[in-house]
Amino acid sequence: MSNAVPSTLRTVLADRIRTRGLAVDAALVAGGAVFTGLMAQVEVPMWPVPITGQTLAVVLVGATLGARRGALSMLVYGLAGLAGLPFFAGWTGGLSSLALPSFGYVIGFIPSAAAIGWLARRDWDKRFFRATAAFTLASAIPFVTGLPYLAIALANLGLPHSLGVVLAEGLYPFVIGGVAKALIAAGVLPLAWRAIGRRSR
């Protein structure tokens, strides 16, 4: 009788930690939220949406922790920021962040982390070209919520909010950076797996 683990049940990086349990999972989730908060401060200030390191953090956290823990980590990140911790760009936080035109992207971090975590558990993070495709897809997900939120926020501020304006302000400036972040993540994760493989020999 074979004891092989089906490909759909393969591990993510966090599963390689020797000590497991609820406390470890909670620490991983919290650590992912803190890491994302720190990466939010790697910022090119722009308005209405700044360029930050958050998206890179989101895909790395999701791929490392898996879908459930990754999504939960992003939920904790968003709630902690709304509770007042300075987790958002520019060391900001609080309920007033809901009025920011960029907050829709933060909402999108949750499904983005879940998607890359789901793909990582199916080995999409172990080879560069597949990882690039997976991380590019996950990096695009925050725009699904970010762009409509941006349009509504601009309208509430009495500013132009046509499709062209929203795309010019909330999508086009981030395409090159998004691809670059996907390439960085696609390089880092396979290297991490190789390092773990060498240590386990």
Rank of each mutant, 00 (worst) to 15 (best):
residue 80 A to G: 15
residue 30 A to M: 14
residue 44 V to S: 00
residue 193 W to K: 05
residue 145 T to C: 06
residue 12 V to Q: 01
residue 64 T to S: 07
residue 14 A to C: 05
residue 81 G to R: 05
residue 170 G to V: 03
residue 92 T to W: 01
residue 53 G to K: 02
residue 166 V to W: 12
residue 59 V to T: 11
residue 59 V to Y: 10
residue 165 V to P: 05
residue 161 H to N: 15
residue 169 E to P: 00
residue 146 G to L: 01
residue 79 L to Y: 04
residue 1 M to L: 13
residue 28 L to A: 13
residue 131 A to L: 02
residue 118 W to P: 07
residue 183 L to A: 13
residue 11 T to M: 10
residue 142 P to V: 07
residue 142 P to E: 06
residue 54 Q to I: 14
residue 198 R to C: 06
residue 117 G to S: 13
residue 199 R to M: 12
residue 154 L to Y: 06
residue 166 V to G: 12
residue 148 P to F: 07
residue 153 A to C: 01
residue 114 A to G: 04
residue 85 L to Q: 04
residue 144 V to T: 08
residue 6 P to K: 14
residue 81 G to F: 09
residue 102 S to Y: 09
residue 36 T to R: 00
residue 117 G to W: 03
residue 149 Y to M: 07
residue 184 I to D: 01
residue 46 M to R: 12
residue 107 I to Y: 08
residue 45 P to C: 12
residue 25 D to Y: 12
residue 106 V to H: 06
residue 63 A to R: 03
residue 94 G to L: 05
residue 72 L to K: 02
residue 149 Y to G: 03
residue 190 P to C: 03
residue 167 L to P: 08
residue 179 V to G: 13
residue 14 A to G: 05
residue 32 G to K: 00
residue 14 A to V: 04
residue 52 T to S: 10
residue 9 L to I: 00
residue 174 F to G: 11
residue 117 G to A: 08
residue 197 G to A: 08
residue 86 P to C: 00
residue 195 A to E: 09
residue 177 G to H: 06
residue 75 L to I: 14
residue 104 G to R: 08
residue 55 T to W: 11
residue 23 A to Q: 14
residue 180 A to F: 10
residue 160 P to A: 15
residue 54 Q to K: 14
residue 159 L to D: 05
residue 100 L to G: 11
residue 11 T to P: 12
residue 118 W to F: 12
residue 134 A to N: 03
residue 92 T to V: 12
residue 28 L to P: 09
residue 75 L to Q: 03
residue 153 A to F: 01
residue 158 G to T: 10
residue 149 Y to N: 05
residue 191 L to E: 02
residue 190 P to W: 01
residue 39 M to Q: 10
residue 160 P to C: 15
residue 1 M to A: 13
residue 129 F to P: 03
residue 78 G to A: 15
residue 197 G to T: 00
residue 143 F to H: 15
residue 155 A to N: 09
residue 192 A to E: 00
residue 95 L to G: 11
residue 167 L to D: 07
residue 71 A to V: 06
residue 52 T to I: 14
residue 6 P to W: 14
residue 87 F to L: 15
residue 162 S to I: 04
residue 39 M to W: 13
residue 19 T to H: 14
residue 2 S to Q: 07
residue 30 A to Q: 03
residue 62 G to F: 00
residue 3 N to V: 05
residue 162 S to C: 11
residue 110 I to N: 00
residue 81 G to Q: 09
residue 10 R to P: 06
residue 76 V to R: 05
residue 181 K to F: 07
residue 64 T to P: 01
residue 88 F to M: 10
residue 126 K to S: 09
residue 97 S to D: 11
residue 53 G to I: 04
residue 55 T to K: 09
residue 130 R to L: 12
residue 132 T to P: 02
residue 177 G to L: 06
residue 152 I to N: 08
residue 1 M to I: 13
residue 166 V to E: 08
residue 27 A to R: 07
residue 87 F to E: 06
residue 149 Y to K: 08
residue 3 N to R: 08
residue 135 F to R: 04
residue 64 T to K: 00
residue 197 G to Q: 01
residue 152 I to M: 11
residue 15 D to K: 01
residue 72 L to P: 00
residue 129 F to E: 11
residue 184 I to Q: 04
residue 163 L to K: 10
residue 176 I to S: 04
residue 151 A to N: 10
residue 143 F to M: 12
residue 121 R to E: 14
residue 13 L to F: 02
residue 93 G to N: 14
residue 135 F to W: 02
residue 83 A to R: 06
residue 70 G to S: 08
residue 68 R to Q: 07
residue 125 D to P: 03
